[in-house]
Simulated assay, not measured.
Amino acid sequence: MPERLQFHLDENVDPDIALALRRAGINVTTSQSANLLAQSDNVQLDFAKTNSRVLITHDDDFLILNSQGIEHAGIVYVQKDAKPIGYIIRMLILLYEVATPEELIGRVEYL
C-alpha cells in the first residue's frame, strides 16, 4: 500500500483535473492513460483497487456498486457540473494532504 493517496480518474472526469493534480506532485492515472476507455464500471473500480488508487468520478453507478458491498480503495464522487473545476482540484489536493490510503478503503467522499 502506498504511503500517500493515488488517484484514478474515470473517463468522464475532465482531464485538466489530472493535469493539475500531477503538477501538484500527485500520482494520477486516467481511464485513457490506463487503456480503460469504454470499460465497465466494475473494471474501472477493480483497476483502482488493484493499484491502490482512489477513484474520482461523476458517475453515480459507482455509488450503487459501493452500496452493494463491492470492495474498493475509495471513491470520490462529484456530481457532474455541480462544482467548478478549481474547487474540485483544491478539494482533491486537500484530501491528498490530510488522508491516508487506509482511511479511504471502502469509503465514499462527496465533493
Rank of each mutant, 00 (worst) to 15 (best):
M1Y: 09
E3F: 11
E3H: 14
Q6Y: 02
D10H: 04
D10I: 06
E11V: 10
D14H: 14
A18R: 01
A24T: 04
A24N: 13
G25E: 02
T29V: 07
S31W: 09
S31R: 03
S31M: 08
A34F: 08
L37P: 03
Q39H: 15
Q39V: 04
S40I: 03
D41M: 01
D41E: 11
V43K: 09
L45F: 09
F47R: 01
K49L: 12
N51Q: 13
R53M: 13
R53N: 10
T57Q: 04
H58C: 07
H58L: 11
D60R: 12
D61G: 10
I64T: 13
L65R: 12
Q68L: 15
H72C: 07
H72N: 13
H72R: 04
A73P: 00
I75V: 12
V76P: 01
V78C: 12
Q79D: 07
K80M: 05
K80A: 10
K80L: 11
A82M: 09
A82P: 00
G86C: 01
G86D: 15
Y87C: 03
M91N: 13
L92S: 08
L92E: 10
L95G: 12
V98M: 12
V98K: 13
T100A: 11
T100M: 10
T100P: 05
P101N: 06
E102M: 09
L104P: 04
L104N: 03
I105P: 00
I105K: 15
I105N: 08
G106A: 09
G106L: 06
V108I: 14
Y110I: 14
L111Q: 04
